[in-house]
C-alpha cells in the first residue's frame, strides 16, 4: 500500500523568546508529520512548550527557525479553511448562543447564507450530542457542554486538522471519560486529523494513534510511541496491562529516574 502524502509537516521547528542575554529556547528542533485521519497526542510536563507548539501549528505565531506546511503550503498565519482549534478554556463568546457561537467562523468567512449557516451549525451541534441546547447562552451550560460546543465550532468548516489544547483539562474524571468517547466517535465519523495536547498520560494513550512525549527546558520531543490498540477504543482498555506499561514507560521518560 502506498503511503498517502502527509497532511502536516513540521521540519526542525525551533522557537526562541527574548533577546540577547535573556534569550531562551522554548522549543528545540521539533519535527513531526501527520497523515490525513491520524490522531496524535502530545504529552509532556508543564512548561515544555506544548501550547507554544500548538500556536505555531495553528499559525497564530511563527517559529523562529524551521517551517510548517499543510498540504505542502507554508503556514504563515491562521488557516481558518484547513485548521480548527479548540482551546483550553472553550473561549465561547458570552453574548452569543451556542448555535451562534458555532456559526461564528462561518460569519467570518462569509461564503454562504444565514440559513445555510444555521443549518450547518445545527448539524455540528447534533454531531457533538447537544441538539437541544442551541439557544442557550454559555453561562447556562456546564463545562463539558461548553467544550463540546467549542469542538463543534472547531469542526464547523470541516477542517482537515483539528488542534486541541488540553480541552478536557477542567473537567471531572467522569465527564472527561465520556468526552473521550464522544471525541473518538467524532474522529471516526469525520475523518479529521487531530493533534491533541494533554497533561494526562492515560488520555494521551487512550485517544491516539501515536503519542509524542515531550520534555521541558528546552521543549523537545523525547520519543514517539505508536499505540497498538484496536479501534474503536473501549474504556476498559485503559485498565489493561498494555496501557499500564505504556503509561509507566512515558512516566519514566518524563519524570522518572532516567529523565533529564
Amino acid at each position: 500500500m502506498i503511503a498517502s502524502p502527509p497532511l502536516l509537516n513540521a521540519a526542525h521547528i525551533s522557537r526562541y523568546f527574548g533577546e540577547g542575554a535573556e534569550r531562551f529556547c522554548a522549543l528545540d528542533d521539533i519535527s513531526l508529520t501527520l497523515k490525513q485521519g491520524q490522531f496524535i497526542s502530545i504529552v509532556g510536563p508543564s512548561g515544555c512548550g506544548k501550547s507554544t507548539l500548538m500556536q505555531m501549528l495553528g499559525g497564530l505565531t511563527q517559529p523562529t527557525q524551521g517551517d510548517i506546511t499543510i498540504d505542502g503550503e507554508r503556514i504563515d498565519g491562521p488557516q481558518p479553511n484547513k485548521i480548527g482549534i479548540v482551546f483550553q478554556d472553550a473561549l465561547l463568546l458570552p453574548w452569543k448562543t451556542a448555535l451562534e457561537n458555532i456559526e461564528f467562523p462561518l460569519h467570518l468567512n462569509k461564503d454562504g447564507t444565514k440559513s445555510d449557516f444555521r443549518a450547518r451549525a445545527q448539524e455540528a451541534l447534533d454531531l457533538v450530542g447537544l441538539s437541544d441546547v442551541g439557544h442557550r447562552y454559555p453561562h447556562e451550560l456546564s463545562g463539558g457542554m461548553r467544550q463540546r460546543i467549542a469542538i463543534a465550532r472547531g469542526l464547523i468548516r470541516n477542517p482537515k486538522l483539528l488542534l486541541m489544547d488540553e480541552p478536557f483539562g477542567a473537567l471531572d474524571e467522569q465527564t472527561r471519560t465520556r468526552m473521550w468517547g464522544e471525541l473518538l466517535s467524532i474522529h471516526a465519523r469525520s475523518g479529521t486529523s487531530i493533534i491533541f495536547i494533554t497533561h494526562s498520560l492515560l488520555e494521551a494513550i487512550y485517544l491516539a494513534d501515536d503519542v509524542m512525549v515531550m520534555a521541558a527546558k528546552p521543549g523537545r520531543i523525547i520519543e514517539t510511541i505508536q499505540i497498538d490498540l484496536p479501534r474503536p477504543r473501549e474504556v476498559h482498555m485503559i485498565g489493561s496491562d498494555y496501557v499500564g506499561s505504556l503509561r509507566n514507560h512515558i512516566w519514566d521518560l518524563i519524570a522518572g529516574p532516567t529523565a533529564r
Binding site: 499559525g59 481558518p80 479553511n81 482549534i85 473561549l91 463568546l93 461564528f104 467570518l108
Partner: peptide, 16 residues
C-alpha cells in the same frame, strides 16, 4: 485577549 486570539484563529480581520 484569549477571545481575540480565538477569533484570529478562525480568520477574523481587524474589521471583524
Amino acid at each position: 485577549p484569549s477571545l481575540l486570539m480565538m477569533a484570529r484563529s478562525f480568520g477574523a480581520t481587524k474589521t471583524d
